[in-house]
């Protein structure tokens, strides 16, 4: 479908109309923290943010998610699945986060189909917005991404002045544009303006490296002393993994209300926690911070390539910004390129 345009002063009206039929999920400020929330109208949606503190993964893979309710009364096991989610529109996510969803698809849509994730994925229309002001910690271009393109999104909006250039990237996006056609105009030279925006934003990146050679180097660095050195300052909290848009580990627990009825839920877990790999008998194959820190970085920069053929670091910079001790994956990438793998 051809590109469209959307007047900036029309966005709020569009989102209000969206909220009337879909569940609208958009960025809002909760005190100083920008995060995605389900909204009943466009009131409070922030448009001038660079990126949210938490990624939008909560809307595909919630931090706490009911899997089913159960009852075991009268010698009978009854299992009730949770209520299905509504059709949703996720507005305002950044290209790095679109890439993170592609990365998570590879995990949840394999031989085993994770219906909880896939149901939400199928029912969500993703409207991404290009970045114009990257943060000093952003490095999507270093890991193969782009602040102004978002393959995998349904629509991509780029601010080109008074209007957004709207790139229609999927059938879902096309259906959306048709359903709300009164808001969309035809492209008239905005594509050329986008090229200027692209050039301008590319020049603003402070962080520029590449992943060239990193994976190959990591293939032989499992026992490298680098990990022990790196891990010393790690606090072993889950900050990096919980703000990461691609971290997807979870634990499964039961909440049993009276011995007969309850619910089973899954919730985020973190490989940085000491008890993450602790076995029932007490053995822990990742006994110290060294093994845990190593696992996180190998998972992001090596195992993901081995398993899925893509990286699980999308360069959003969240862990770089939020880590309490400035243990920065960007530094790790640079370090890995420099260290002598044969030590």
């Amino acid at each position: 479908m051809a590109n469209k345009t959307l007047k900036k002063d029309q966005v709020v009206s569009l989102l209000n109309k969206v909220a009337a039929t879909y569940q609208l999920i958009a960025p809002v400020a909760d005190d100083s923290v920008v995060m995605f929330k389900p909204l009943s109208s466009a009131e409070g949606v922030v448009f001038d943010y660079v990126n949210s503190v938490l990624p939008p993964k909560d809307y595909f893979f919630p931090q706490t998610e009911q899997m089913f309710k159960f009852s075991t009364r009268n010698n009978q096991i009854v299992i009730n699945p949770p209520d299905p989610v509504k059709e949703r529109v996720l507005f305002g996510i950044r290209p790095c986060d679109v890439q993170s969803i592609i990365a998570m698809d590879k995990v949840f849509d394999r031989e085993y189909k994770d219906t909880y994730y896939l149901d939400k994925r199928a029912k969500t229309t993703i409207i991404a917005v290009s970045c114009t002001e990257p943060l000093p910690t952003c490095f999507c271009t270093s890991v193969g991404g782009s602040p102004t393109s978002a393959p995998g999104a349904d629509l991509l909006l780029t601010d080109v002045g008074d209007v957004y250039l709207v790139e229609v990237l999927s059938e879902k996006g096309e259906a959306f544009v048709q359903k709300f056609s009164e808001f969309f105009g035809n492209e008239n030279g905005e594509g050329a303006k986008k090229a200027e925006v692209e050039k301008a934003v590319a020049a603003k990146f402070v962080r520029t490296t590449s992943l060239e050679g990193v994976k190959a180097k990591l293939d032989n660095m499992f026992e490298h002393p680098y990990w022990e050195r790196l891990a010393r300052k790690c606090l072993g909290c889950a900050c990096c993994t919980y703000v990461c848009p691609t971290c997807h580990c979870f634990d499964i627990c039961d909440f049993n209300s009276n011995g007969f009825e309850g619910e089973r839920f899954r919730c985020w877990d973190s490989c940085m926690f000491a008890d993450y790999t602790r076995m029932a008998g007490g053995h822990n194959p990742r006994p110290t911070k060294k093994e845990r820190v190593r696992n996180r970085f190998l998972h992001k920069l090596k195992y993901s390539w081995d398993r899925y053929g893509l990286g699980h670091c999308v360069g959003c910079g969240r862990c770089s910004r939020e880590c309490p001790v400035n243990l920065d994956i960007y530094t790790v990438i640079s370090d890995v390129k420099e260290v002598d793998a044969n030590v």
Binding site: Q63, L235, C237, A238, C239, Y242
Partner: peptide, 25 residues
């Protein structure tokens, strides 16, 4: 808003229990 990352606990010099009650299964 809390995501229970436990960064507050882990950076805290007062939190010096050998095993934190919040980690007990």
């Amino acid at each position: 808003r809390c995501i229970r990352c436990y960064a507050c606990r882990n950076i805290c010099p007062a939190c010096n229990c050998k095993e934190c009650c919040f980690d007990q299964a």
